[in-house]
Design a binder for these strands. Structure first.
Length: 236
DNA sequence: TCATTAAATTTCT
DNA sequence: AGAAATTTAATGA
């Protein structure tokens, strides 16, 4: 440590949950991984830019999605502070070609593959944290896969709201605030369309599950949980 | 039930 | 003003 301890970058790295038990790694990351910032809509990664290393999100939100030739998108993950994306996905099998866009003001640090291995040797506990994070991603994907196969749009939307509120919700008096997502983006997360999302959301608003504003939602997690339960028992 | 198409309306820059 | 985001409505699979 030393001269860099006071920098914005060092402070953001220290705040990342992954590094909670690995303070030594913060200094190494600070030395090896340059930080870049981006604005909403900026492309952070695309299929041609694979193998570009491991990206640590320090601020903001990133959407990973597939894009088909007709322009339709399917969102695979929405990631926030402390999450990683990039090289990890390709450690095992060959992943689908994904794009990564900034959803708001994003800051991230990128570690080249070789440097990642060095860091993991120095701080094995970091590997465990990474494994936990990736396991969580798999669990979310499995949940979403089942919902896509078996549930209607309303149920899938409720599920998404519950997950977004838990992951990113800024809770104030029982209402979790989410302010970086459009209806269009929600549609790509649940396999639906912008118009259907708007209609379904206003239905849920009438049920008291959400309040909506332009690029802003307040999710009542208690009501969402109750509606999910009720729907689960109803046959379709 | 929900995607698609079309159009109107609201809100941001 | 112009762009972006949201809303409503009609239609058909």
């Amino acid at each position: 440590m030393g001269a860099r301890e006071g920098t914005e970058k060092f402070r953001l790295l220290s705040a990342m949950e992954i590094f909670a038990e690995a303070p030594e790694a913060v200094a190494t990351m600070d030395r090896l991984a340059p930080m870049v910032t981006a604005q909403r809509g900026d492309r952070l990664s695309d299929p041609s830019r694979r193998g570009g290393g491991l990206h640590f999100i320090k601020r903001g939100h990133v959407r990973l999605y597939a894009l088909d030739p007709t322009g339709h998108e399917a969102t695979v993950a929405v990631l926030g502070m402390g999450h990683v994306f990039g090289e990890v996905g390709s450690l095992a099998a060959s992943p689908p070609d994904l794009y990564a866009d900034a959803m708001d003001e994003v800051a991230l640090c990128t570690l080249r593959r070789g440097d990642l291995e060095e860091l993991l040797r120095q701080e094995p506990r970091l590997g465990l944290r990474l494994l936990e994070a990736l396991s969580g991603r798999i669990r979310d994907l499995e949940e979403q896969l089942v919902a896509l196969a078996l549930q209607d749009v309303r149920h899938r939307l409720l599920l998404l709201l519950a997950r977004l509120a838990a992951a990113f919700g800024d809770p104030a008096g029982g209402w979790a605030s989410i302010d970086f997502i459009t209806h269009q983006e929600i549609a790509t997360m649940i396999g639906s369309t912008r118009e259907t999302v708007t209609a379904t959301l206003s239905g849920l608003a009438r049920s008291g599950a959400v309040r909506t504003g332009r690029r802003q939602m307040w999710v009542n997690t208690a009501v969402v949980a109750r509606l999910l339960n009720a729907a689960g028992r109803e046959p379709r």
